[in-house]
Design a protein around this nucleic acid. Sequence first.
RNA 1: CGGGGCGUGGCUCAGUCUGGUAGAGCACUCGGUUUGGGACCGAGGGGUCGCAAGUUCGAAUCUUGCCGCCCCGACCA
Length: 445
Amino acid sequence: MRLSRYFIPVLKETPSDAQIVSHRLMLRAGMIRQEAAGIYAWLPLGHRVLRKIEQIVREEQDRAGAAEMLMPTLQPADLWRESGRYDDYGLEMLRIVDRHKRDLLYGPTNEEMITEIFRSYCRSYKDVPKLLYHIQWKFRDEIRPRFGVMRGREFLMKDAYSFDLDEDSARKAYNRMFVAYLNTFSRMGLKAVPMRADTGPIGGDLSHEFIILAETGESEVFCHADLVEMGAPGLDVDFDGDLQPHVDQRTSLYAATEEMHEPDRFDAEVPENKRLSARGIEVGHIFYFGTKYSEPMKALLVHPDGKERPVHMGSYGVGVSRLMGGIIEASHDENGIIWPESVAPYGVGIINMRADDEETNVACEIAYAALSKAGKEPLLDDTADRAGAKFARMDLIGLPYQLVIGPRGLKEGKIEVKVRRSGEKYELSLDDAINRLSEGSFSDG
RNA sequence: CGGGGCGUGGCUCAGUCUGGUAGAGCACUCGGUUUGGGACCGAGGGGUCGCAAGUUCGAAUCUUGCCGCCCCGACCA
Protein backbone atom coordinates (compact mmCIF):
# COMPACT_ATOMS: atom_id res chain seq x y z
CA MET A 1 0.00 0.00 0.00
CA ARG A 2 1.11 3.52 -0.78
CA LEU A 3 0.53 5.96 2.02
CA SER A 4 -0.40 8.73 -0.42
CA ARG A 5 -3.59 6.88 -1.30
CA TYR A 6 -4.19 5.16 2.00
CA PHE A 7 -6.16 6.51 4.95
CA ILE A 8 -4.34 6.85 8.25
CA PRO A 9 -5.60 9.98 9.98
CA VAL A 10 -2.88 10.22 12.64
CA LEU A 11 -3.33 12.66 15.47
CA LYS A 12 -0.46 14.75 16.72
CA GLU A 13 -2.15 15.54 19.96
CA THR A 14 -3.71 13.08 22.33
CA PRO A 15 -7.49 13.21 22.35
CA SER A 16 -8.65 14.21 25.81
CA ASP A 17 -11.13 11.35 26.10
CA ALA A 18 -8.55 8.61 26.11
CA GLN A 19 -6.99 7.63 29.41
CA ILE A 20 -5.12 4.41 28.89
CA VAL A 21 -2.21 3.98 26.55
CA SER A 22 -3.76 1.53 24.10
CA HIS A 23 -6.79 3.74 23.61
CA ARG A 24 -4.62 6.79 23.08
CA LEU A 25 -2.36 5.07 20.64
CA MET A 26 -5.22 3.57 18.66
CA LEU A 27 -6.77 7.00 18.28
CA ARG A 28 -3.48 8.69 17.52
CA ALA A 29 -2.50 6.06 14.97
CA GLY A 30 -5.80 6.54 13.17
CA MET A 31 -6.99 2.99 13.80
CA ILE A 32 -10.40 3.66 15.29
CA ARG A 33 -12.92 6.40 15.63
CA GLN A 34 -15.45 6.57 18.40
CA GLU A 35 -19.00 6.93 17.11
CA ALA A 36 -20.79 6.66 20.44
CA ALA A 37 -19.86 5.57 23.96
CA GLY A 38 -18.25 2.16 23.58
CA ILE A 39 -18.94 1.97 19.85
CA TYR A 40 -16.14 2.37 17.34
CA ALA A 41 -15.61 2.57 13.62
CA TRP A 42 -12.57 0.57 12.54
CA LEU A 43 -10.47 2.65 10.19
CA PRO A 44 -8.28 0.86 7.62
CA LEU A 45 -5.23 0.36 9.83
CA GLY A 46 -7.25 -0.85 12.81
CA HIS A 47 -9.35 -3.03 10.60
CA ARG A 48 -6.30 -4.79 9.20
CA VAL A 49 -5.03 -5.63 12.67
CA LEU A 50 -8.47 -6.80 13.70
CA ARG A 51 -8.54 -9.16 10.73
CA LYS A 52 -5.08 -10.50 11.55
CA ILE A 53 -6.05 -11.24 15.13
CA GLU A 54 -9.28 -12.80 13.98
CA GLN A 55 -7.43 -15.00 11.51
CA ILE A 56 -5.04 -16.33 14.14
CA VAL A 57 -7.98 -17.14 16.39
CA ARG A 58 -9.70 -18.86 13.48
CA GLU A 59 -6.66 -20.94 12.51
CA GLU A 60 -6.17 -22.18 16.04
CA GLN A 61 -9.84 -23.03 16.47
CA ASP A 62 -9.73 -25.00 13.25
CA ARG A 63 -6.55 -26.73 14.32
CA ALA A 64 -8.23 -27.77 17.55
CA GLY A 65 -11.03 -29.38 15.60
CA ALA A 66 -13.73 -26.76 15.97
CA ALA A 67 -16.06 -26.02 13.07
CA GLU A 68 -16.73 -22.43 12.09
CA MET A 69 -20.23 -21.15 11.49
CA LEU A 70 -21.96 -17.80 11.83
CA MET A 71 -24.98 -16.91 13.88
CA PRO A 72 -26.88 -13.64 13.48
CA THR A 73 -26.40 -10.55 15.62
CA LEU A 74 -30.15 -10.23 16.18
CA GLN A 75 -31.97 -12.96 18.02
CA PRO A 76 -35.63 -13.58 18.82
CA ALA A 77 -36.51 -12.92 22.45
CA ASP A 78 -38.48 -16.17 22.69
CA LEU A 79 -35.24 -18.16 22.64
CA TRP A 80 -34.12 -16.32 25.73
CA ARG A 81 -37.47 -16.72 27.40
CA GLU A 82 -36.94 -20.47 27.12
CA SER A 83 -33.71 -20.39 29.06
CA GLY A 84 -35.10 -17.85 31.50
CA ARG A 85 -32.36 -15.37 30.71
CA TYR A 86 -34.58 -12.81 28.96
CA ASP A 87 -35.59 -11.44 32.31
CA ASP A 88 -32.37 -12.28 34.14
CA TYR A 89 -30.00 -10.50 31.81
CA GLY A 90 -31.22 -7.06 32.74
CA LEU A 91 -30.45 -3.76 31.10
CA GLU A 92 -27.18 -4.97 29.65
CA MET A 93 -29.19 -6.63 26.92
CA LEU A 94 -30.14 -4.33 24.09
CA ARG A 95 -33.78 -5.02 23.27
CA ILE A 96 -35.30 -4.16 19.94
CA VAL A 97 -38.84 -4.34 18.62
CA ASP A 98 -39.41 -4.93 14.93
CA ARG A 99 -42.29 -3.59 12.79
CA HIS A 100 -44.46 -6.53 13.71
CA LYS A 101 -43.95 -5.70 17.35
CA ARG A 102 -41.88 -8.84 17.82
CA ASP A 103 -39.28 -8.69 20.57
CA LEU A 104 -35.72 -9.05 19.36
CA LEU A 105 -32.39 -8.50 21.00
CA TYR A 106 -28.86 -7.75 19.85
CA GLY A 107 -27.03 -10.84 21.03
CA PRO A 108 -24.72 -10.44 24.02
CA THR A 109 -23.80 -14.12 23.64
CA ASN A 110 -25.11 -17.20 21.87
CA GLU A 111 -25.72 -20.12 24.22
CA GLU A 112 -29.47 -20.12 23.59
CA MET A 113 -29.20 -20.00 19.84
CA ILE A 114 -26.53 -22.65 19.52
CA THR A 115 -28.49 -24.91 21.87
CA GLU A 116 -31.57 -24.42 19.71
CA ILE A 117 -29.57 -25.30 16.61
CA PHE A 118 -28.00 -28.34 18.21
CA ARG A 119 -31.23 -29.77 19.54
CA SER A 120 -32.86 -29.43 16.13
CA TYR A 121 -30.47 -31.85 14.55
CA CYS A 122 -28.81 -33.96 17.20
CA ARG A 123 -30.68 -36.65 19.10
CA SER A 124 -28.31 -39.53 19.71
CA TYR A 125 -25.11 -40.21 21.58
CA LYS A 126 -23.75 -40.92 18.11
CA ASP A 127 -24.14 -37.24 17.25
CA VAL A 128 -21.52 -36.07 19.73
CA PRO A 129 -18.95 -34.76 20.34
CA LYS A 130 -19.49 -31.49 18.49
CA LEU A 131 -17.43 -28.34 18.77
CA LEU A 132 -18.78 -25.27 16.96
CA TYR A 133 -17.65 -21.67 16.92
CA HIS A 134 -18.28 -18.34 15.32
CA ILE A 135 -16.69 -14.93 15.26
CA GLN A 136 -19.35 -12.28 15.48
CA TRP A 137 -20.11 -8.81 16.77
CA LYS A 138 -21.87 -8.69 20.06
CA PHE A 139 -23.44 -5.96 22.08
CA ARG A 140 -23.64 -5.51 25.79
CA ASP A 141 -25.08 -2.27 26.98
CA GLU A 142 -22.49 -1.73 29.66
CA ILE A 143 -23.35 0.83 32.27
CA ARG A 144 -20.03 2.38 31.69
CA PRO A 145 -17.93 1.55 28.68
CA ARG A 146 -14.27 2.57 28.97
CA PHE A 147 -10.70 1.86 27.99
CA GLY A 148 -11.47 2.17 24.28
CA VAL A 149 -11.97 -1.17 22.55
CA MET A 150 -11.02 -3.09 25.69
CA ARG A 151 -14.37 -2.46 27.23
CA GLY A 152 -16.66 -1.33 24.46
CA ARG A 153 -20.35 -2.00 24.20
CA GLU A 154 -20.01 -3.43 20.72
CA PHE A 155 -17.19 -5.91 20.42
CA LEU A 156 -15.97 -8.73 18.23
CA MET A 157 -15.83 -12.06 19.94
CA LYS A 158 -15.05 -15.61 19.12
CA ASP A 159 -17.27 -17.97 20.98
CA ALA A 160 -17.16 -21.73 20.74
CA TYR A 161 -19.61 -24.22 22.15
CA SER A 162 -19.02 -27.88 22.90
CA PHE A 163 -21.59 -30.66 23.09
CA ASP A 164 -20.79 -33.92 24.81
CA LEU A 165 -22.42 -36.95 26.35
CA ASP A 166 -21.17 -36.40 29.88
CA GLU A 167 -18.78 -34.41 31.99
CA ASP A 168 -15.81 -36.68 31.32
CA SER A 169 -16.05 -36.25 27.58
CA ALA A 170 -16.84 -32.55 27.98
CA ARG A 171 -13.50 -32.25 29.73
CA LYS A 172 -11.78 -33.35 26.54
CA ALA A 173 -13.42 -30.51 24.62
CA TYR A 174 -12.46 -28.18 27.44
CA ASN A 175 -8.85 -29.28 27.19
CA ARG A 176 -8.82 -28.73 23.43
CA MET A 177 -9.85 -25.15 23.94
CA PHE A 178 -7.46 -24.72 26.84
CA VAL A 179 -4.51 -25.74 24.67
CA ALA A 180 -5.80 -23.88 21.60
CA TYR A 181 -5.98 -20.70 23.65
CA LEU A 182 -2.41 -21.03 24.86
CA ASN A 183 -1.24 -21.36 21.27
CA THR A 184 -3.50 -18.57 20.04
CA PHE A 185 -2.24 -15.98 22.49
CA SER A 186 1.33 -17.10 22.10
CA ARG A 187 1.14 -16.50 18.35
CA MET A 188 0.16 -12.92 19.07
CA GLY A 189 3.22 -12.39 21.20
CA LEU A 190 1.25 -12.47 24.43
CA LYS A 191 2.04 -14.26 27.64
CA ALA A 192 -1.37 -15.41 28.75
CA VAL A 193 -1.82 -17.16 32.05
CA PRO A 194 -4.81 -19.40 32.66
CA MET A 195 -6.33 -18.64 36.03
CA ARG A 196 -9.04 -20.46 37.83
CA ALA A 197 -12.31 -18.66 37.53
CA ASP A 198 -15.57 -18.84 39.37
CA THR A 199 -17.69 -21.71 38.11
CA GLY A 200 -20.88 -20.40 39.65
CA PRO A 201 -23.53 -22.94 40.58
CA ILE A 202 -21.91 -25.71 38.51
CA GLY A 203 -18.86 -26.04 40.69
CA GLY A 204 -15.86 -28.11 39.75
CA ASP A 205 -12.57 -26.93 38.34
CA LEU A 206 -13.63 -26.36 34.75
CA SER A 207 -13.50 -22.64 34.26
CA HIS A 208 -10.43 -20.60 33.46
CA GLU A 209 -9.83 -17.04 32.51
CA PHE A 210 -6.84 -16.34 30.30
CA ILE A 211 -5.12 -13.27 31.60
CA ILE A 212 -2.37 -11.15 30.13
CA LEU A 213 -0.39 -9.05 32.54
CA ALA A 214 -0.43 -5.31 31.99
CA GLU A 215 -0.24 -2.31 34.28
CA THR A 216 -3.59 -1.10 33.08
CA GLY A 217 -5.33 -4.40 33.69
CA GLU A 218 -8.82 -4.25 35.04
CA SER A 219 -8.36 -6.57 37.95
CA GLU A 220 -5.67 -7.69 40.30
CA VAL A 221 -4.27 -11.17 39.76
CA PHE A 222 -2.01 -13.45 41.75
CA CYS A 223 0.07 -16.29 40.37
CA HIS A 224 3.23 -18.32 40.46
CA ALA A 225 5.82 -16.41 38.43
CA ASP A 226 6.83 -19.51 36.46
CA LEU A 227 3.44 -19.57 34.75
CA VAL A 228 4.18 -16.34 32.94
CA GLU A 229 7.23 -17.74 31.19
CA MET A 230 5.93 -21.23 30.63
CA GLY A 231 5.16 -20.78 26.94
CA ALA A 232 2.62 -22.60 24.83
CA PRO A 233 2.40 -26.30 23.97
CA GLY A 234 3.15 -25.44 20.33
CA LEU A 235 1.37 -25.80 17.04
CA ASP A 236 2.39 -29.42 16.55
CA VAL A 237 0.44 -30.60 19.55
CA ASP A 238 -1.82 -33.59 18.87
CA PHE A 239 -5.36 -32.47 19.60
CA ASP A 240 -6.65 -36.02 19.31
CA GLY A 241 -4.13 -37.19 21.86
CA ASP A 242 -4.08 -36.73 25.60
CA LEU A 243 -4.02 -33.02 26.35
CA GLN A 244 -4.41 -33.43 30.08
CA PRO A 245 -0.67 -33.13 30.86
CA HIS A 246 -0.54 -29.72 29.16
CA VAL A 247 -3.47 -28.59 31.25
CA ASP A 248 -2.19 -30.11 34.48
CA GLN A 249 1.22 -28.52 34.05
CA ARG A 250 -0.43 -25.10 34.11
CA THR A 251 -3.19 -25.68 36.59
CA SER A 252 -0.99 -27.24 39.23
CA LEU A 253 0.62 -23.89 40.00
CA TYR A 254 -1.28 -21.21 41.82
CA ALA A 255 -3.03 -18.60 39.71
CA ALA A 256 -6.14 -16.67 40.65
CA THR A 257 -7.97 -13.49 39.91
CA GLU A 258 -9.07 -11.12 42.63
CA GLU A 259 -12.42 -12.80 43.21
CA MET A 260 -10.90 -16.29 43.45
CA HIS A 261 -7.81 -15.32 45.38
CA GLU A 262 -7.03 -17.14 48.62
CA PRO A 263 -4.15 -15.37 50.32
CA ASP A 264 -3.43 -18.24 52.71
CA ARG A 265 -3.14 -20.77 49.92
CA PHE A 266 -1.06 -18.35 47.87
CA ASP A 267 1.43 -17.97 50.69
CA ALA A 268 1.48 -21.69 51.42
CA GLU A 269 1.84 -22.94 47.85
CA VAL A 270 4.10 -20.35 46.25
CA PRO A 271 7.65 -19.62 47.43
CA GLU A 272 8.05 -16.00 48.37
CA ASN A 273 10.35 -15.11 45.47
CA LYS A 274 7.86 -16.59 43.00
CA ARG A 275 4.81 -14.76 44.25
CA LEU A 276 3.58 -12.47 41.53
CA SER A 277 0.79 -10.02 42.03
CA ALA A 278 -0.05 -7.78 39.11
CA ARG A 279 -2.83 -6.28 37.06
CA GLY A 280 -4.37 -8.42 34.36
CA ILE A 281 -6.51 -8.16 31.25
CA GLU A 282 -8.88 -11.01 30.57
CA VAL A 283 -8.65 -12.00 26.93
CA GLY A 284 -10.30 -15.40 27.05
CA HIS A 285 -12.63 -17.39 29.19
CA ILE A 286 -13.47 -21.08 28.99
CA PHE A 287 -16.29 -22.61 30.86
CA TYR A 288 -17.97 -25.96 31.33
CA PHE A 289 -21.58 -25.40 32.35
CA GLY A 290 -23.05 -28.84 32.00
CA THR A 291 -26.78 -28.89 31.40
CA LYS A 292 -27.57 -25.32 32.37
CA TYR A 293 -29.11 -24.57 28.97
CA SER A 294 -29.72 -28.04 27.58
CA GLU A 295 -32.05 -28.92 30.42
CA PRO A 296 -34.51 -26.02 30.22
CA MET A 297 -34.23 -25.93 26.44
CA LYS A 298 -34.60 -29.68 26.11
CA ALA A 299 -31.48 -30.44 24.11
CA LEU A 300 -31.56 -34.15 24.88
CA LEU A 301 -29.50 -37.07 23.67
CA VAL A 302 -30.53 -40.72 23.68
CA HIS A 303 -27.76 -42.64 25.41
CA PRO A 304 -26.74 -46.23 24.58
CA ASP A 305 -29.01 -47.39 27.40
CA GLY A 306 -31.98 -45.92 25.58
CA LYS A 307 -32.57 -43.12 28.06
CA GLU A 308 -32.68 -39.40 27.20
CA ARG A 309 -30.41 -37.06 29.06
CA PRO A 310 -29.51 -33.37 28.50
CA VAL A 311 -26.34 -32.77 26.51
CA HIS A 312 -23.30 -31.45 28.40
CA MET A 313 -22.08 -28.11 27.14
CA GLY A 314 -19.22 -25.71 27.51
CA SER A 315 -18.55 -22.29 26.06
CA TYR A 316 -15.23 -20.73 25.15
CA GLY A 317 -14.82 -17.04 24.47
CA VAL A 318 -12.02 -14.89 23.09
CA GLY A 319 -12.34 -11.12 23.01
CA VAL A 320 -11.03 -10.47 19.52
CA SER A 321 -11.41 -6.68 19.51
CA ARG A 322 -10.28 -6.48 23.12
CA LEU A 323 -7.11 -8.34 22.20
CA MET A 324 -6.01 -5.42 20.07
CA GLY A 325 -5.98 -3.18 23.10
CA GLY A 326 -4.30 -5.89 25.12
CA ILE A 327 -1.53 -6.37 22.59
CA ILE A 328 -0.82 -2.65 22.55
CA GLU A 329 -0.83 -2.46 26.34
CA ALA A 330 1.78 -5.22 26.31
CA SER A 331 3.83 -3.84 23.43
CA HIS A 332 4.49 -0.13 23.02
CA ASP A 333 6.96 2.58 23.95
CA GLU A 334 6.88 6.36 24.27
CA ASN A 335 6.90 6.75 20.50
CA GLY A 336 3.98 4.51 19.75
CA ILE A 337 2.84 1.00 19.08
CA ILE A 338 5.21 -1.93 18.54
CA TRP A 339 3.29 -4.62 16.69
CA PRO A 340 4.33 -8.24 16.95
CA GLU A 341 4.95 -9.39 13.39
CA SER A 342 2.03 -11.80 13.47
CA VAL A 343 -0.60 -9.09 13.85
CA ALA A 344 1.16 -6.05 12.35
CA PRO A 345 -1.07 -4.27 9.82
CA TYR A 346 1.88 -4.14 7.41
CA GLY A 347 5.17 -5.99 7.62
CA VAL A 348 7.61 -3.28 6.61
CA GLY A 349 7.33 0.49 6.38
CA ILE A 350 9.34 2.01 3.56
CA ILE A 351 10.19 5.64 4.17
CA ASN A 352 10.91 7.64 1.05
CA MET A 353 12.98 10.49 2.47
CA ARG A 354 12.69 12.66 -0.59
CA ALA A 355 9.68 12.07 -2.79
CA ASP A 356 11.05 14.61 -5.30
CA ASP A 357 14.33 12.78 -5.85
CA GLU A 358 14.32 10.48 -8.83
CA GLU A 359 16.99 8.08 -7.59
CA THR A 360 15.24 7.77 -4.23
CA ASN A 361 11.91 7.05 -5.90
CA VAL A 362 13.42 4.34 -8.05
CA ALA A 363 15.02 2.64 -5.04
CA CYS A 364 11.75 2.82 -3.11
CA GLU A 365 9.83 1.28 -5.99
CA ILE A 366 12.35 -1.56 -6.25
CA ALA A 367 12.04 -2.26 -2.53
CA TYR A 368 8.27 -1.97 -2.63
CA ALA A 369 7.91 -4.40 -5.52
CA ALA A 370 10.37 -6.91 -4.08
CA LEU A 371 8.88 -6.89 -0.59
CA SER A 372 5.36 -7.13 -1.97
CA LYS A 373 6.40 -10.16 -3.96
CA ALA A 374 7.97 -11.69 -0.86
CA GLY A 375 4.64 -11.34 0.94
CA LYS A 376 5.96 -8.78 3.41
CA GLU A 377 3.05 -6.39 2.88
CA PRO A 378 5.07 -3.17 2.68
CA LEU A 379 3.59 0.24 3.38
CA LEU A 380 5.38 2.85 1.32
CA ASP A 381 5.43 6.38 2.69
CA ASP A 382 5.56 8.25 -0.61
CA THR A 383 4.16 11.50 0.76
CA ALA A 384 5.89 14.86 0.49
CA ASP A 385 6.04 15.24 4.28
CA ARG A 386 9.26 16.11 6.01
CA ALA A 387 11.58 13.47 7.32
CA GLY A 388 10.78 14.08 10.97
CA ALA A 389 7.07 13.76 10.41
CA LYS A 390 7.57 10.52 8.52
CA PHE A 391 9.76 8.98 11.21
CA ALA A 392 7.35 9.98 13.94
CA ARG A 393 4.37 8.60 12.07
CA MET A 394 6.08 5.34 11.22
CA ASP A 395 7.12 4.86 14.84
CA LEU A 396 3.59 5.64 15.97
CA ILE A 397 1.88 3.07 13.77
CA GLY A 398 4.46 0.55 14.90
CA LEU A 399 5.30 -1.61 11.89
CA PRO A 400 8.00 -4.10 12.94
CA TYR A 401 10.60 -2.90 10.40
CA GLN A 402 11.37 0.38 8.72
CA LEU A 403 13.31 0.78 5.52
CA VAL A 404 14.71 4.29 5.25
CA ILE A 405 15.68 5.29 1.73
CA GLY A 406 17.05 8.72 0.89
CA PRO A 407 19.60 10.54 -1.26
CA ARG A 408 22.16 10.81 1.51
CA GLY A 409 22.43 7.06 1.98
CA LEU A 410 22.04 6.19 -1.67
CA LYS A 411 25.13 8.27 -2.42
CA GLU A 412 27.07 5.60 -0.52
CA GLY A 413 24.90 2.82 -1.92
CA LYS A 414 23.29 2.32 1.47
CA ILE A 415 19.85 2.33 2.90
CA GLU A 416 18.87 1.91 6.52
CA VAL A 417 16.84 -0.80 8.18
CA LYS A 418 15.42 -0.01 11.59
CA VAL A 419 13.96 -2.61 13.90
CA ARG A 420 11.05 -0.89 15.59
CA ARG A 421 11.13 -2.90 18.82
CA SER A 422 14.82 -2.61 19.64
CA GLY A 423 15.58 0.57 17.75
CA GLU A 424 18.57 -1.16 16.17
CA LYS A 425 19.64 0.28 12.85
CA TYR A 426 21.54 -1.42 10.06
CA GLU A 427 23.19 0.24 7.09
CA LEU A 428 22.95 -2.11 4.14
CA SER A 429 22.85 -2.13 0.40
CA LEU A 430 19.36 -2.09 -1.04
CA ASP A 431 19.64 -5.69 -2.21
CA ASP A 432 20.89 -6.95 1.14
CA ALA A 433 18.12 -5.15 2.96
CA ILE A 434 15.46 -6.55 0.66
CA ASN A 435 16.87 -10.06 0.90
CA ARG A 436 17.21 -10.05 4.66
CA LEU A 437 13.74 -8.60 5.19
CA SER A 438 12.28 -11.09 2.73
CA GLU A 439 13.92 -13.98 4.53
CA GLY A 440 12.92 -12.61 7.90
CA SER A 441 16.50 -12.79 9.10
CA PHE A 442 16.20 -9.70 11.26
CA SER A 443 14.99 -10.42 14.72
CA ASP A 444 12.48 -8.09 16.25
CA GLY A 445 13.33 -9.43 19.67
C1' C B 1 -27.32 4.03 38.69
C1' G B 2 -24.53 7.10 42.86
C1' G B 3 -20.35 10.76 42.99
C1' G B 4 -17.20 14.21 40.04
C1' G B 5 -16.20 16.78 35.42
C1' C B 6 -16.61 18.40 30.39
C1' G B 7 -19.25 20.12 25.72
C1' U B 8 -16.25 26.91 22.06
C1' G B 9 -13.30 25.99 13.79
C1' G B 10 -10.84 19.10 12.13
C1' C B 11 -7.51 18.50 17.04
C1' U B 12 -5.65 20.51 22.00
C1' C B 13 -7.49 24.48 24.71
C1' A B 14 -8.28 29.94 26.56
C1' G B 15 -12.52 33.12 27.21
C1' U B 16 -17.72 31.83 31.46
C1' C B 17 -16.59 33.76 38.07
C1' U B 18 -17.48 39.85 36.84
C1' G B 19 -22.96 39.63 30.13
C1' G B 20 -20.95 44.13 25.42
C1' U B 21 -21.50 40.36 19.84
C1' A B 22 -15.40 34.88 19.61
C1' G B 23 -9.49 33.84 20.34
C1' A B 24 -4.51 31.00 20.45
C1' G B 25 -1.49 26.81 18.96
C1' C B 26 -1.69 22.70 15.72
C1' A B 27 -4.13 21.18 11.10
C1' C B 28 -5.97 23.14 6.16
C1' U B 29 -5.35 26.58 1.35
C1' C B 30 -2.00 29.94 -1.50
C1' G B 31 3.06 32.20 -2.17
C1' G B 32 8.14 31.97 -0.79
C1' U B 33 12.39 29.95 1.84
C1' U B 34 13.54 25.08 3.48
C1' U B 35 14.27 19.51 3.49
C1' G B 36 17.83 12.68 7.33
C1' G B 37 13.78 12.89 13.66
C1' G B 38 6.80 16.28 14.05
C1' A B 39 10.57 23.51 9.68
C1' C B 40 10.15 28.99 9.01
C1' C B 41 8.04 33.72 7.01
C1' G B 42 3.81 36.04 4.82
C1' A B 43 -1.29 35.88 3.25
C1' G B 44 -6.04 33.33 3.66
C1' G B 45 -10.47 30.11 4.54
C1' G B 46 -13.20 27.84 8.31
C1' G B 47 -17.12 28.34 14.37
C1' U B 48 -25.70 27.66 14.78
C1' C B 49 -19.94 28.60 21.32
C1' G B 50 -24.13 20.66 22.36
C1' C B 51 -29.84 21.60 21.87
C1' A B 52 -34.21 24.26 23.57
C1' A B 53 -36.69 27.79 26.35
C1' G B 54 -36.12 31.95 29.62
C1' U B 55 -33.89 36.67 31.91
C1' U B 56 -31.77 41.12 29.54
C1' C B 57 -31.20 46.81 25.36
C1' G B 58 -27.57 42.85 24.68
C1' A B 59 -26.01 35.79 26.39
C1' A B 60 -20.30 31.43 24.80
C1' U B 61 -20.95 33.90 29.70
C1' C B 62 -26.82 34.19 34.02
C1' U B 63 -31.49 30.64 34.93
C1' U B 64 -34.27 26.09 33.79
C1' G B 65 -34.90 21.66 31.05
C1' C B 66 -32.92 18.15 27.72
C1' C B 67 -28.92 15.62 24.92
C1' G B 68 -23.96 13.84 24.42
C1' C B 69 -19.15 12.51 26.27
C1' C B 70 -15.25 11.51 30.03
C1' C B 71 -13.41 10.03 35.03
C1' C B 72 -14.16 7.22 40.10
C1' G B 73 -17.46 3.25 42.14
C1' A B 74 -20.76 -1.28 41.68
C1' C B 75 -20.95 -4.89 36.86
C1' C B 76 -18.57 -7.46 32.53
C1' A B 77 -15.14 -11.05 26.77
